[in-house]
Computed example of a mutant assay.
Amino acid sequence: MFSISELCCMFCCPPCPGPIAAKLAFQPPEPTYKLTPADDANVKYNLHLFERAEWQYSERDKSKVESFFTRTSRGNLITCIYVRCSRNAKYTLLFSHGNAVDLGQMSSFYISLGTQLNCNIFGYDYSGYGMSGGKPSEKNLYADIEAAWQALRNRYNNQVPKTTAVSEQNDIDVRFNISPETIILYGQSIGTVPTVDLATKHEVGAVILHSPLMSGLRVVFRNTKRTWFFDAFPSIDKVSKVKSPVLVIHGTDDEVIDFSHGIGIYERCPKAVEPLWVEGAGHNDVELHSQYFERLKRFLSIELVK
């Protein structure tokens, strides 16, 4: 049950979705990378990682990462990276990262994830994160992922670059065939919010929701049973419209987004597969458990090909 103070806060002076969103989610870190133009047309950029990015690979591996900017429908210029991890990848993961990180910090993980899953990874920074312009907001989240989706589809589908230097250097085929059924949307924590929203608009190969939240108010007030008009991030009301297969992953000891959120999202998914509940895992260590990669591999290599 709600306390008297909580009820007064909700009904006497209900908050707006924007402040809820800002309080819950938006903590962009100090940028851990920068981009510099790699050509006169400003089509491609060189990625420079700062020490805080904790890059775990060689300079040669960094050449697998293509960086560029794209503009959202709300006018913000956001950073995107395409990580070519495999020359025979069937799927590309459109990855929406969690809070308090940017693409620089995620780049090593993207290479590790893509290599183990035999996938390529497309990542982007939300407005106000990394080198992306604008400010973080719920509306910008939805515009950011839509711009990332369009950039992935338009820039890479069936393209053969004029030079194969990158392919020869990394032994990776640069010929792409990125159609909706070969794209898997992967959202982690706050990244599940734009992921669910995009998945209601486009039927894709699959959706992975890692530590998802049902809504902003439900994170603050765990006993909330319905979505109020002033709530933010109402994924619980959208996820039932997702037509693609959905894998939900959540740690049972999540101290940021309670485990009940993962259960609630899973129960609303029409095409949910067997979820992964990681016993004893918190909010930021699910990936450290062996069953994490095992479950993802089974989902991509077995369940999606049936």
Rank of each mutant, 00 (worst) to 15 (best):
F122Q: 02
I172V: 13
Y124S: 04
T72Q: 06
F122I: 09
F95T: 02
S167N: 11
L141F: 12
N158K: 12
A272V: 04
L288N: 13
S260W: 11
K201Q: 14
T195L: 03
A272F: 06
T224D: 00
P37I: 10
A232G: 01
I20W: 05
T227A: 09
D231I: 01
L300W: 00
D254S: 10
P275E: 09
R268F: 04
R226M: 14
V43M: 09
S290K: 14
F176C: 09
H48Q: 12
S189Q: 08
T200P: 05
S132I: 05
P136Y: 06
G18F: 07
Y57P: 01
S107L: 08
F233K: 00
L198D: 01
G262K: 07
S137A: 12
S189W: 04
R52E: 15
E274G: 08
V83N: 00
K271W: 09
T227M: 05
F299S: 01
I81F: 06
F259W: 11
V246S: 02
C119N: 00
G216E: 06
G123L: 10
L213D: 00
F221H: 12
V166Q: 09
P37F: 07
I172S: 07
F221V: 06
L24C: 10
A89N: 03
Y110W: 15
K90L: 10
F69N: 05
T195V: 12
F69W: 11
L213F: 10
V242S: 05
L288Y: 10
A21G: 14
D231T: 09
V273H: 07
Y57E: 04
F176A: 06
E6S: 14
S107A: 15
V174M: 12
V220N: 00
I249W: 02
F50H: 13
N42V: 03
G123H: 06
G205H: 06
S215F: 02
S215R: 03
N118I: 02
Y156M: 04
Y142A: 01
E146V: 13
W149L: 04
F176G: 01
R52T: 13
H289C: 07
D237V: 03
S58T: 15
S167T: 08
F109Y: 14
F259D: 02
I183Y: 05
R84G: 01
E181A: 04
A89M: 04
K44L: 15
C8M: 13
H48Y: 11
L288S: 14
V207G: 02
I121W: 01
V273E: 07
K64S: 12
G187N: 06
S108N: 11
L7M: 11
I78S: 07
I302W: 09
I178N: 04
R298M: 11
L213I: 14
A148W: 07
K201Y: 07
L93A: 07
N76V: 03
P28M: 08
S215W: 02
D61I: 01
H289N: 12
K44W: 14
S179Y: 10
V160N: 13
D258I: 05
V242T: 06
Y82L: 11
F293Y: 15
